[in-house]
Design a protein around this nucleic acid. Structure first.
Length: 722
DNA sequence: CCAACTCAAGCCTGTACATC
DNA sequence: GATGTACAGGCTTGAGTTGG
């Protein structure tokens, strides 16, 4: 009978005794749990049993008990296949080794069938070393530079006090076995071989595997390729642009890593995802060509004039893209254009400095930036003519030869048409560099990274991208331009949903609740995106914005700005009980008798034609076709929005309601995270009554401070006053 | 709860061969 | 001869799964 201490990790070393047991019964005996095993010999049961008792209250120990015909001990570890001599059980008092119980000594080995046999070579009885012994051997071999022989000697000496064979290495061969196993598991094989293994283990991941004459390996996650194909198909059908980035990074290993990434168009903020990658020994046109050829083979729709590839204007990359995909449009990072144009060593910068001095080079750079920033090509041509008069003829020649074409392609007027113009930076390839950065982050060993390590990193990065895309599309995460988080770190190009028009900025500020009416002071608190908040008192001042025409005041060109919904001083939300033309209590505007410009209820009545939220776009009435076109034309729509849309569809019965309800599904809903459903179902229903059933009241959702309506000439709301 | 099963990892042996 | 490596191949173990 023995008590075994159970490993805290749950390992069941104590149970291993080199014999084959068959579980035959288990039962509870009071607080004890009993498991009974029967010894197997060559597959048949032998009259020898092993019992294990455990106590629930103290799972750290197991009580073991052996009973039966002990002559049955045999079939220990080792080669005991039929026809071979069974090795001998070793009997000792080692409490750690269950098979070595003392009872064995009392047993007469009088049965030939159960005769113990010594090891053929050593003459010593065979015994299985305890697992802790092997573990120690393994740890010593791994943590020191000792040879197996030395480890073997040390291990046997260390257990001098405990002479039980199971507490020592069995023989030197055992140490060799362990060392061999360690080597097999930890050896780093040849980089190329590992890479080659990837071509088989990661099916369809390695698109190109070239060793001679220059190493060139193109990889792309097959699932990402499939998904990108779907996207390209959708967007080419819609004739909309898809923006890619392509950039080469250095310092990853003894090779270049080029990444093809995409501005993912279906998620807010257009996060960067990696489409494919190329590890190449040389950075010449043929290397990049192989990358694009492999990609185009998998992504045939890449070769489309709706494909925009931003690069940093390396000649090798440009040349490769011209070859394949020839129809794609290359656009160059302004920073790199500028660098190449004026500053970069070995290029025109030093040339300009050398010929005309630092100051002149500075002027050329300024001219160059002005040219890039032209709003139209005509303006560019005219400005270029002006500049030429001041430029040195030599610089003119250089500009004509190397710069002009690229500026025409990537100037503001050109990229604005594509919707990729950034007012701050023009056009940058930062996103690609950011993706490169995140790959580097994923590689622990940056300088001496191996090809297969980098390949694996790309694989995992893409898998992560795919997972995040799936989560984003199913509405499980709020993407908001931060997916994947790693990619947007560093010098990532931040998403800029900030509108550029006056009206757009106004809408955005309203949607973000950055304009609030302060009833106490009768002023508006306006918080812009930057800087301090402003307290604005309009008084009788009027807005002269030419774009807005107020109902009933056609052509006036002057509109009074008023709080759309005045809050009572108590902070309660007033109801929208229609007020009489002379009423000044609550209601929606019109509460001030001095407001000469505000349309009277009667005027409003005759003027209302279309009712819509000012910050949301008008969408045609619902039909199945329209729903589809809505989704397609609004790629930022999420599954959550679709679900909401489905609910709205069920209710869709009247035209006015349709319009209102559809407003719920636009991307603008995301502007205000705290009030994503700003236009709630209750409000919609109320408006429904208001518009169709001539209901007299409507209540705003709790917490509402403003209500914005835009009325159009000729619209009617029967019997309704706002 | 348990028997029967699968599976991968681990362990072990024999043989041949290389190196010191 | 001692030491060490490489390979093929078989058995056991331990963890997990499945179905009754």
């Amino acid at each position: 009978v023995y008590v075994y201490q159970v490993d805290k990790t749950g390992a069941m070393y104590w149970r291993a005794d080199g014999k084959s047991w068959k579980s035959i019964r288990s039962k509870n005996v009071g607080k004890l749990k009993l498991r009974l095993f029967q010894l197997l010999s060559n597959g048949s049961s032998v009259q020898f049993f092993r019992s294990e008792y455990t106590v629930d209250e103290n799972p750290g120990y197991v009580l073991g008990f052996y009973n039966g015909d002990f002559r049955a001990r045999r079939l220990l570890h080792g080669d005991s296949s039929p026809g071979k001599t069974p090795v001998k059980a070793f009997i000792s008092k080692d409490p750690e080794t269950p098979q070595s119980q003392g009872k064995g000594k009392d047993v007469q080995d009088d049965d030939d069938d159960y005769e113990d046999v010594d090891d053929d070579r050593t003459g010593f009885p065979f015994v299985t070393s305890h697992k802790s012994v092997k573990k120690n051997l393994s740890e010593t071999l791994q943590s020191t530079t000792m040879k197996p022989t030395a480890v073997y000697r040390q291990a046997t000496m260390a257990t001098f006090d405990d002479i039980s064979p199971s507490s020592q290495p069995r023989n030197i061969r055992q140490v060799y076995n362990i060392a061999s196993e360690i080597k097999r598991k930890t050896s780093v094989r040849d980089d190329m071989y590992e890479l080659f293994c990837m071509t088989r283990e990661y099916e369809k991941f390695v698109l190109n595997f070239q060793l001679a004459s220059k190493v060139n390996v193109v990889v792309a996650h097959p699932a990402m390729v499939a998904h990108t194909n779907d996207l390209l198909e959708i967007f080419s059908t819609k004739n909309e642009y898809v923006v890619f980035h392509y950039d080469t990074t250095y310092g990853v290993g003894g090779f270049y890593l080029s990444l093809m990434s995409m501005r993912y168009p279906l998620l807010e903020g257009n996060p960067i995802i990696v489409i494919g990658s190329c590890m190449h020994e040389a950075s010449d046109t043929s290397s990049h060509s192989q990358m694009f050829q492999s990609l185009c083979q998998e992504l045939p729709l890449l070769n489309s004039d709706t494909t925009i590839i931003r690069t940093d204007r390396e000649a090798a990359i440009s040349g490769a893209i011209r070859l394949n995909p020839p129809d794609a449009q290359s656009r160059y990072c302004w920073n790199h254009l500028r660098d190449y144009g004026v500053r970069r060593a070995g290029e025109i910068g030093p040339w300009a400095q050398k010929h005309f001095g630092v100051e002149a080079a500075h002027n050329y750079r300024a001219d160059f930036f002005q040219l890039l920033s032209c709003e139209t090509e005509d303006e560019y041509v005219l400005m270029l003519e002006d500049f030429r008069e001041t430029w040195d003829p030599q610089f003119q020649d250089y500009y004509n030869t190397y710069i002009n074409t690229d500026v025409i392609n990537s100037g503001r007027w050109a990229i604005q048409k594509l919707g990729i113009y950034n007012p701050d930076s023009g056009i940058t390839n930062n996103a690609a560099e950011s993706a490169n950065f995140s790959v580097k982050q994923g590689i622990k060993c940056r300088i001496n990274s191996r090809l297969y390590q980098v390949g694996l990193s790309v694989y995992y990065l893409q898998a992560f991208n795919l997972m995040e895309i799936t989560r984003g599309l199913t509405g499980h995460v709020v993407i908001d331009g931060k997916i994947p988080e790693d990619v947007s770190r560093g010098n990532a190009e931040k998403p800029r949903p900030v509108p550029t028009t006056t009206l757009g900025i106004a809408k955005m500020l309203v949607m973000k609740r950055r304009i609030e009416f302060a009833p106490a002071s009768g002023t508006f608190v306006v918080r812009g995106l930057f800087g301090p908040a402003h307290n604005v008192h309009l008084g009788n001042q009027t807005c002269t914005c030419a774009r807005v025409k107020r109902a009933g005041k056609k052509g006036s060109g002057r509109v009074r700005v008023e709080p759309s919904l005045a809050l009572s001083r108590q902070g309660k939300i007033p109801d929208l009980t229609p007020s009489s033309p002379t009423s000044s209590t609550g209601g929606l505007a019109c509460q001030n008798s001095s407001d000469q410009d505000v349309a009277s209820p009667t005027q409003a009545e005759s003027a209302i034609k279309k009712l819509r939220y000012i910050a949301l776009d008008l969408i045609p009435p619902i039909s199945q076709t329209n729903v589809e076109s809505t989704i397609l034309s609004n790629p930022k729509i999420t599954f959550g929005d679709l679900k909401s849309l489905a609910i709205q569809l069920k209710r869709a019965e009247c035209g006015v309601l349709n319009k209102l309800q559809l407003h719920c599904v636009g991307p603008s809903i995301k502007y205000d995270e705290d009030h994503p459903g700003w236009l709630t179902d209750a409000v919609i229903d109320d408006f429904h009554h208001l518009c169709v059933n001539s209901a007299k009241t409507v209540s705003l959702p709790s917490g509402s401070t403003h209500c914005f309506l835009e009325l159009e000439d000729g619209a009617t709301l029967p019997n309704t006053t706002l």
